[in-house]
Amino acid sequence: MSALGHLSTPVTPEPVAARKGGRRRTAYLLLLPGGLWLILFFVVPLVSLVAASLYDPNGSIEAGFRMTWSFHNYVDAIADYAVPLGRSLWYSLLTTAFCLLLGFPLAYAIAFKAGRWKNLLLALVIAPFFTSFLIRTLSWKLLLGDNGFVVDALRTVHILGSDGRLLATTAAVVTGLTYNFLPFMVLPLYASLEKIDHRLIEAGSDLYASAFTTFRTVTFPLAMPGVVAGTLLTFIPAAGDYINAQLLGTPKQRMIGNDIQRLFAAGAYPTAAALSVTLMAAITVLVLFYVRRAGTEELV
């Protein structure tokens, strides 16, 4: 800014203060676009959502909703929907665990063993994003369907009984979720693993640690930032997902997202909003607890 002009002149306290003020103003100006974006697309919808959760539950789209500060909406919503809420958190926990189990070896292989195939493999990890989420989940419906070859094959080898099914089971929903969110686990894990200095692993083996011990005491702790990021990126969206439960499950596998979607569609805005806020709060509490426990702030 104007600071350049002052460079050659003797510095007196006043210009310094003025310059500092100018710098601070610049910093705020630079923050402005981001701040506006956040207000417009995060704060406003959030306030509107919280407000909707406190509307009179007897209102309707036709009659309109009145703000009655009915906190009782929350009590009702939680009482009525505790089961799908718990199920959602349980399913997304399972999904996160499976994604970690599948994703870690994959990310590890890409980061350390892939050599010149590295970029191709990364591209393949991202490749599913070129098709819509919905279409991909629909293909799983076909794949796991009662007349699909997977079920046929499993029945032939008697892993499934003659009337056994894959579709419309908990397994199908969790499989679908795991499939859909796997890339969100693999990419941050890869980024973390890829950064690890190979000499640290050599140092581990030089210092009497077998391959497994080196993994446990060096590689995995150093990959923790990726593990935390990956589990968050998987757990959070999986908890709010309703597509997988809807296409691959039955009402018995209903997740909280299905209920929220149904309630919104039916015009029961206050209950739907209260459930959304409850889900959000539950996830926030869990994540804060988790991040505190994982202690990643020390790793960076």
Partner: peptide, 17 residues
């Protein structure tokens, strides 16, 4: 890890965690 040999690595390779 079975050798009675230890190394001081170039750039040290200290465990950052």
């Amino acid at each position: 890890y079975k050798r009675p040999v230890n190394t001081v690595f170039q750039n040290y390779a200290l465990f950052p965690h």
